[in-house]
Simulated assay, not measured.
Amino acid sequence: MKKILSYFLIFLLGAGSGAAALIFGDPSLLSHTPKPVVASLPYNPLTAISVTETGIESNLGSSGHYVSFNLEFNVTKQALTAQGGSPTAATGGTGTGSPELDAKIRNDLITLARSTSYQEFTQSGGISTFKDQVREVLESIFGPGTIGPIYFSSLMTQ
């Protein structure tokens, strides 16, 4: 009985110290809050950073259809760095230079694609509407007025 009680006390001490480390050591692990959107200068094409997100694939709505696209857009340098991106890494290749920010962008765009039906996508003006919705997603991440032109360098539905 003493042995069981001592193991139980050791377990409680370990669990308590682990919980204390989570709470006091890095409280951000317990609550995920998005990075704050900082006030940035209005979009200026001369100082904007070009970002390319490739290989975004998802089902469209519930119709059994599929979309795959590569996205290119320009964003203000201040908005990109405020969200953890790197202007030099973004200019040199694909992505923003931050794996977390790239994942956020991709996940939000996949969620958008899943909420768009094939009929909405293929109707007259459907791609323009989808592009406007992509802009709304990007501005929800980077802030209003921080996104420049958006291009689909590749777009396929099936």
Rank of each mutant, 00 (worst) to 15 (best):
M1T: 01
K3H: 08
L5H: 01
S6A: 10
S6K: 08
F8A: 14
F8Y: 09
L9T: 01
I10F: 08
A15D: 02
G16P: 03
S17F: 06
A19P: 01
A20L: 13
A20C: 07
F24M: 12
G25E: 06
D26Q: 14
D26E: 14
D26R: 11
P27E: 13
S28V: 04
L29E: 11
L30F: 10
L30R: 06
S31Q: 15
H32M: 10
P34A: 14
K35Q: 13
P36V: 04
V38A: 13
A39V: 15
N44A: 09
N44D: 12
N44V: 02
P45Q: 12
L46W: 04
L46N: 13
T47H: 11
T47G: 03
I49N: 02
I49E: 02
S50M: 09
S50L: 09
V51M: 06
V51R: 07
T52C: 00
T52Q: 10
E53V: 13
E53R: 13
G55H: 09
S58E: 05
L60Y: 05
L60N: 04
G61P: 08
S63Y: 05
G64A: 01
G64H: 02
H65Q: 15
H65F: 14
Y66T: 14
S68R: 15
F69D: 11
F69M: 11
L71A: 00
F73Y: 15
N74Q: 14
T76V: 05
T76D: 02
K77Q: 14
Q78S: 14
Q78K: 13
A79L: 03
T81L: 08
T81D: 02
T81R: 04
G84W: 10
G85H: 07
S86C: 08
P87G: 01
P87R: 05
T88V: 12
A89N: 13
A89C: 05
A90Y: 03
T91L: 13
T91W: 07
G92I: 10
G92L: 13
G93E: 11
T94P: 05
T94W: 01
G97N: 13
G97E: 11
S98A: 14
E100Y: 13
E100G: 09
L101F: 05
L101D: 06
D102L: 10
D102E: 12
D102R: 08
A103P: 01
A103N: 08
A103Q: 05
A103E: 15
K104D: 10
N107K: 14
I110K: 15
I110E: 12
I110F: 09
T111K: 11
L112D: 03
A113F: 06
A113R: 03
S115H: 11
T116H: 05
Y118T: 05
E120S: 07
T122A: 06
Q123C: 00
G125Q: 03
I127H: 02
S128Q: 09
T129R: 05
T129P: 03
F130I: 04
F130V: 03
K131A: 07
D132Y: 10
D132P: 04
D132H: 07
Q133T: 02
Q133P: 07
R135K: 15
E136N: 15
V137M: 08
V137R: 08
E139F: 04
E139C: 06
S140R: 15
G143W: 09
G145V: 02
T146E: 04
T146H: 03
G148F: 09
G148S: 12
P149Y: 10
I150Y: 01
I150C: 03
F152D: 07
S153E: 15
M156P: 01
T157K: 04
Q158H: 13
Q158L: 11
Q158M: 11
